[in-house]
Design a protein around this nucleic acid. Structure first.
Length: 431
RNA sequence: GGAGAGGUGGCAGAGUGGUUGAAUGCGCCGGUUUCGAAAACCGGUUGUGCCGCAAGGUACACGGGAGUUCGAAUCUCCCCCUCUCCGCCA
């Protein structure tokens, strides 16, 4: 949700923001609707004030006849008020619906571009492994050979894009999630939270996943609840409707949760393997901080760094991408992705084909907080909306792809990265 | 799943149709007093939208929504939530 007042004062900012994001929104229609709404609202309030005054006077009348007459005189006014109120309500409803669709303008430092092809590589870490000295296998081949993923059983149980992690596969999955959590909690002072993954519509709308992405969520119609595609929902909406104290901020939360995604409209994309699946586990970090652009930017960088530290500890090559305006979605002011080296995706010519997205760091400023009515009382006594940010720490089993593929050996076995061994009983290799 | 009770300001807790956005107490802020503090006393203490340069005005909000009424915290209906008892259950 954007600030209507700001939209009134700087409509061009929102026109440009939407067009840069490649999203169609009729700003003029909103301005027009807003003007009409305010005009009707003023009429309504004037009449209602009159009505309120008259009602009070009636309350003081003692004589029954006088009272009866006064009540009779109210009939016309009452009808007018009702009519105006109804008009105002309708206009406001329309306005809110449109307002919900206005994207947050991208930050000035976000490059303008149409889609992910226009994203900018900011920097890279590690040397992408291209020459293994043998013909490297894909994670699918490795997983099947090692018996650590059973895709067939997954499909039998749950349909397409499903899998079952077996033995060391499941252990590795848990190990990397544990490492990710420990980095956040033990080293970076985040509070570990266990959040609901089944939430009300409010939480989905408040965090900005609805209405635009409604078709991506599983809907439990029996209870009218939704399965979340990320713990971002539970963590960010944790304090919705509340007014926090500035001294409580910044809140730093991390959660591991199962994530549910319908992946509607992706038929044929990444159909094989562990890359795009309906259900996975993810360690997610969320920061709720003061309404301060500079502080938000700092957190954004730091949160990116936390994720990088996991990759570095696992010695996995990656690159950091500044997403362009066309690729950051409705809610973000800025977004940076981390793409990790996945040898099986490399086409042998263009290095960039070998990187697959594993992390996505979002900076939202007030956008979610407005929808969530998430505020704080500043040390100056003023109440403001919080800023929110989030970033992946580790999403698995997608994250098993770079681990399996980068750490594979000629015989099809996989060496377990040092950093994960403590979480796997000291084991050094699979297979 | 069955039966019942209830949701009022930061908290506790009055209020069952008429100047009630809301008594009272606690808390909090400011002041008086004091060498200072405590106590006591006095004053203040919800949010949001709209209009206004401002002072201020106005509307709305007593879980949420709809309704009855000249007028609703108070009456009616729907929804949400909390609690108690019974049943079932990881």
């Amino acid at each position: 949700m954007i600030d209507l007042k700001d939209l009134r004062e700087n409509p061009d900012r929102y026109r440009k923001g939407a067009s840069d994001k490649n999203i169609k929104v009729d700003i003029d229609a909103i301005l027009d609707l807003d003007a009409r709404h305010r005009s009707v609202q003023q009429d309504f309030e004037k009449q209602r004030a009159e009505q309120n005054l008259a009602s009070q006077q009636i309350g003081r009348l003692k004589d029954p006849e006088e009272k009866k007459a006064a009540v009779a005189r109210m009939a016309v006014l009452k009808a007018q008020v009702k009519e105006l109120e109804e008009q105002a309500r309708k206009l406001n409803e329309e306005l809110q619906t449109l307002l919900l669709q206005v994207p947050q303008p991208p930050d000035p430092d976000v490059p303008v571009g149409k889609d992910s092809n226009d994203n900018l590589v900011l920097y890279r870490w590690g040397e992408p492994k291209k020459d293994f000295g043998f013909k490297p296998r894909s994670h699918i081949e490795l997983a099947e050979k090692l018996g650590i993923v059973n895709f067939e059983a997954g499909v039998r149980l749950s349909g397409s894009r499903s899998y079952v992690l077996m033995g060391a596969g499941s252990e590795l999955h848990q190990a990397v999630l544990r490492l990710a959590l420990d980095i956040m909690v033990r080293e970076n002072g985040f509070t570990q939270v266990t959040v609901p993954v089944l939430v009300r519509e409010e939480a989905m709308r408040g965090t900005g996943f609805f209405p635009a992405g409604r078709e991506q969520a599983y809907h439990v119609t029996e209870d009218n609840l939704f399965l979340t595609g990320t713990a971002e929902v539970g963590l960010t909406a944790l304090h919705m409707g509340q007014t926090l104290e500035e001294s409580q901020l910044p809140l730093r939360y991390v959660a591991v949760s199962t994530c549910f995604r319908r992946e509607a409209g992706t038929y044929g994309k990444d159909t094989a393997g562990l890359y795009r699946v309906h259900l996975f586990d993810k360690v997610e970090q969320v920061v709720i901080c003061k309404n301060d652009v500079e502080e938000s930017k700092q957190w954004h960088t730091r949160m990116l760094g936390f994720a990088e530290s996991l990759l570095q500890r696992l010695k996995l090559p990656y690159r950091v991408i500044q997403c362009c305006t066309g690729d950051i979605g409705v809610k973000n002011a800025s977004m940076m992705d981390i793409e990790t080296w996945m040898p099986s995706r490399y086409d042998g010519k263009d290095e960039s084909t070998g990187y697959g997205e594993t992390h996505s760091a979002s900076r939202l400023y007030e956008f979610q907080a407005r929808r969530l009515n998430l505020r704080y009382k500043g040390s100056d006594g003023k109440i403001r909306f919080c800023h929110t940010l989030n970033n992946t720490v580790c999403a698995s089993p997608r994250f098993l792809i770079p681990i399996l593929e980068n750490y594979q050996n000629a015989d099809g076995s996989v060496t377990i990265p040092d950093a994960l061994r403590p979480y796997m009983g000291g084991r050094e290799r699979i297979g």
